[in-house]
């Protein structure tokens, strides 16, 4: 997985550091955006706005039960039908999405920031530290996140801390590898040598020269990984290791709907569709960002 990600995303950045003028030109207009970026950004934007506005716009209380109206088909009162306890599916989808998406976003942010810093430090420092971290990433990359999560649940029990830890423990490694390879690439340019000759400190070079130029491939990679994180969050909730009842997210909605598969397939279809569309939209953004970088690079 990571092999491929490295392969797909690590392309040499521009030869010269981006100047203000060049950055300005990059923002020229939506017309220069690749279609995948445009479609992905629009979809994801709509999803985010819906999730942010959920407390005000959701049609029903997501926890309100109405046993007289259980497993109802979609209709005027329940646009997407109701579940086995008569709760409104659309409201639960909107409410549950807030959990799925924010956990995925939080853990991804932690992974991206810590991984990037570790990777850049590795590239600048080299030597034993670099060797140790790279072997560590080798080992961590070999474990599926679900197994790490199962192990952590066995030790720490089920709670949100465990969930976040499970998603972060191995998640920083692809970012560290990518940041390292990009930083090595940038570090070999003359202007870094010039900055050093001028007496710039190591951390100044790191934050002023390397980080800004590494941001674009890292951002694209972050978007590509988001879908993966979202699916894993759902998988853990599906197994009962993520969100705990009475709260629900997309993964746990799928799990509770399992017994009603034949009677009301919608209960399975909609939460899955929500994960799929959200994951797809962000993946499209990532692919678009990569395409745009390759066009310019």
């Amino acid at each position: 997985m990571s092999l491929l990600d490295d392969h797909l995303t690590s392309k040499a950045p521009n030869d010269a550091p981006a100047t203000g003028a060049e950055r300005g030109r990059g923002r020229a207009g939506l017309r220069t955006w690749p279609p995948s970026l445009l479609v992905g950004a629009t979809l994801f934007g709509l999803i985010l706005i819906t999730l942010i506005l959920t407390p005000w716009i959701m049609p029903h209380d997501p926890a309100a039960q109405n046993l007289a109206d259980r497993l109802a088909p979609s209709g005027a009162t329940h646009p997407l039908g109701s579940d086995h306890l008569g709760r409104d599916v659309l409201s639960r989808l909107m409410d549950g999405g807030r959990f799925s998406v924010s956990i995925a976003a939080i853990t991804l942010l932690i992974c991206a920031v810590s991984g990037t810093l570790v990777g850049i430090v590795c590239a600048r420092r080299g030597g034993k530290f670099d060797e140790f971290v790279m072997r560590l990433t080798d080992v961590l990359l070999a474990f599926p996140e679900i197994i790490v999560a199962l192990f952590l649940v066995a030790v720490l029990g089920t709670n949100y801390g465990t969930l976040i830890l499970a998603l972060v423990i191995g998640g920083w490694t692809p970012f560290a590898r990518l940041a390292r390879s990009v930083a090595l690439e940038i570090g070999s340019h003359d202007y870094i040598e010039a900055a050093r000759a001028l007496g710039c400190s190591s951390s100044f070079i790191m934050f002023r020269h390397i980080l800004p130029n590494a941001l674009s491939p890292l951002l694209a990679h972050t978007a590509v990984r988001f879908g993966h994180k979202l699916i894993t969050v759902g998988a853990l909730s599906y197994l009962g290791l993520g969100i705990q009842p009475p709260d629900a997210d997309w993964g746990s909605m799928l799990a509770t709907a399992q017994p009603y598969l034949t009677k009301t397939p919608g209960l399975i279809i909609y939460p899955g569709l929500a994960i799929f569309v959200t994951a797809l939209s962000v993946t499209l953004i990532g692919q678009g960002l990569n395409a745009r970088r390759n066009q310019r690079g």
């Binding site: 397939p265 569709l273 799929f276």
Partner: peptide, 22 residues
């Protein structure tokens, strides 16, 4: 094929069961 990456297996599996098994 790039879109396939976004399909959760815990969604695909019940859908396949519904169509091919049930």
């Amino acid at each position: 094929t790039q879109g396939f990456v976004a399909i959760p297996e815990y969604w695909l599996a019940p859908v396949l069961i519904l169509v091919f098994a049930l």
